[in-house]
């Protein structure tokens, strides 16, 4: 099976969906001839032309607003936010219009729109290019939020998102773009939205996480295996609707849960996971449900040692897991 980078898997998914369905189009800043700031859409305008790969003005509310209108009228827009940090000017369109359209119209109108946004830090991106804002969107029912960690999931989930009848926020961890390579089968397949995956099985402790942290958790689990600690890693893949069944099944087996997320600790989506575990797996718990997250500091520092302090790492995850396993 061919090995691909995450960024190649996303590009393949866009290309294949645009070939399959001519209502699919892309819109975003510099995504045409420029191929986007990360080159995710490289080559698409050559194949599909400027009417289907549209360079937009520097106005996120317009990008999303246009996409909502198009989607409501039968198109399948894929809107690119240059960085997840920049999505905030479009918040009103997303939260008040896109997410509520189906409900408000008594199931008459839908918004089959995908919003792609590069999330996360660890690339010395500093304040404006590093945030993990997923919890702001998981609190908006009507949206779907996915965050693949591997090339396989990236391609399959993007296809599922494009074919979904409702708005999907598709988050891409920018550090995985060119650092994570994996097997991706040729041809068409989808990864269903709403299904987590156990990326590693173990017995002593469950790590629940998503995005880049899946890879850090797998690294930590490999370290801890040398010490005789057996870790199960659950990759959520979809945050909204979250797959509680898989989480609870794992935690009931291991009795211990470490929830790892790159966002700031307070109010992060991991708090929701921890709360669900405490409520529904209570009688199976053999230790405190523990969160490991970035500190509540306003922004990711650009200064490299400070960024290392801020960001989670396989070593920090291993230390937290070691401590919980010993409880």
């Amino acid at each position: 099976m061919p090995q691909k980078l995450v960024i190649e898997a996303i590009n393949d998914a866009l290309r294949e969906e645009m070939r399959r369905d001519e209502t699919v189009f892309c819109i975003g800043q510099d995504i045409g001839a420029g191929g986007g700031v990360f080159l995710v859409t490289q080559g698409l305008q050559n194949e599909f032309g400027p009417d289907r790969v549209i360079d937009s003005p520097l106005a996120e509310s317009a990008i999303i607003g246009v996409s909502i209108g198009a989607a409501a009228n039968g198109m399948r827009p894929v809107a690119e936010m240059q960085f997840f940090d920049y999505i905030l000017p479009a918040m009103e369109q997303i939260a008040n219009e896109a997410a509520k359209m189906r409900w408000r119209s008594f199931n008459t109108w839908g918004v089959p729109m995908v919003m792609r946004a590069p999330t996360g830090g660890g690339v010395t991106g500093g304040i404006y290019h590093s945030q993990s804002l997923e919890a702001m969107f998981t609190n908006i029912p009507g949206l779907k939020v996915v965050l693949p960690a591997t090339p396989y999931d990236a391609k399959g989930l993007l296809k599922a998102a494009i074919r979904d009848p409702d708005p999907v926020l598709y988050l891409e961890h920018k550090k995985t773009y060119r650092s994570i390579r994996g097997e991706v089968p040729d041809g068409d397949y989808v990864v269903p939205i709403g299904k987590a995956e156990v990326k590693r099985t173990g017995n002593n402790l469950t790590i629940v996480t998503w995005g880049l942290m899946v890879h850090y958790a797998l690294d930590a689990a490999a370290q801890l295996e040398q010490e005789g600690i057996s870790i199960e890693v659950v990759d959520l893949r979809t945050l909204l609707p979250v797959d509680n069944e898989t989480i609870l099944e794992s935690v009931k087996k291991t009795g211990k849960a470490l929830v790892v997320y790159e966002a700031n600790r307070t109010g992060g989506f991991g708090g929701e996971i921890a709360s669900t575990i405490a409520e529904f797996a209570f009688e199976h718990l053999d230790g405190p449900v523990t969160r490991l997250a970035s500190p509540d500091i306003p922004a990711m520092p650009w200064n490299h040692p400070q960024e290392a302090f801020f960001m989670l790492s396989p070593e920090k995850i291993a230390a937290a897991a070691r401590k919980l396993a010993a409880y």
Binding site: T266, L292, D296, F309, E315, K316, A318, A319, R322, K323
Partner: peptide, 12 residues
């Protein structure tokens, strides 16, 4: 391993 307590040594 680096001491994870460094990031945990706050009342938060």
């Amino acid at each position: 391993a680096p001491d994870v307590e460094a990031t945990h040594a706050s009342p938060l």
